[in-house]
């Protein structure tokens, strides 16, 4: 599971460098993100622009990460591809997460800071 991290003053930027988050990789994804977010209190912006396929296991892992971060630390998403966006919409998780069109827009958005 390739993730690219950038720590900014108020944002932890995480780019998912994989084209799938599925049942074969969901547990690893969740554990990597848990380890990477154990320190700090910035909001976390997870960019999914390279992810072409997300199944219910992958979605469950993203929800699990949001829960692990707790109520005081925000997890936001950016760059959902059409197939990934549809999974969020069908499961109504698009109403739970703040979703930005692009990672750049997410990083420049100060409302969540």
């Amino acid at each position: 599971m390739q993730l690219q991290l950038q720590t900014l003053p108020k944002v932890l930027s995480v780019l998912v460098m994989e084209d799938r988050i599925d049942a074969a990789s969901a547990i690893q994804f969740k554990e990597r993100l848990r380890d990477l977010t154990q320190e700090g209190d910035q909001r976390v912006v997870l960019d999914l622009a390279r992810v072409q396929f997300l199944d219910s296991s992958g979605l469950g892992a993203i929800v699990a990460v949001k829960k692990l971060l707790g109520p005081d630390r925000v997890l936001e998403l950016s760059g959902l591809t059409p197939t990934v966006e549809r999974v969020f919409r069908l499961t109504r998780m698009d109403t739970i997460f703040t979703i930005h069109l692009t990672h750049e827009a997410a990083l420049s958005d100060v409302t969540g800071a």
Binding site: S56, V63, K67, L90, T91, T95, I96
Partner: peptide, 26 residues
């Protein structure tokens, strides 16, 4: 069936059960 609403507290969000909802939807 999903029981999620926009006001569902984070701690109560489901981490599973999405699969059959997707299958039935599609």
């Amino acid at each position: 069936k999903l029981s999620v609403t926009p006001v569902t507290p984070t701690a109560d969000l489901p981490e599973g059960g999405f699969g059959w909802h997707l299958i039935r939807s599609l």
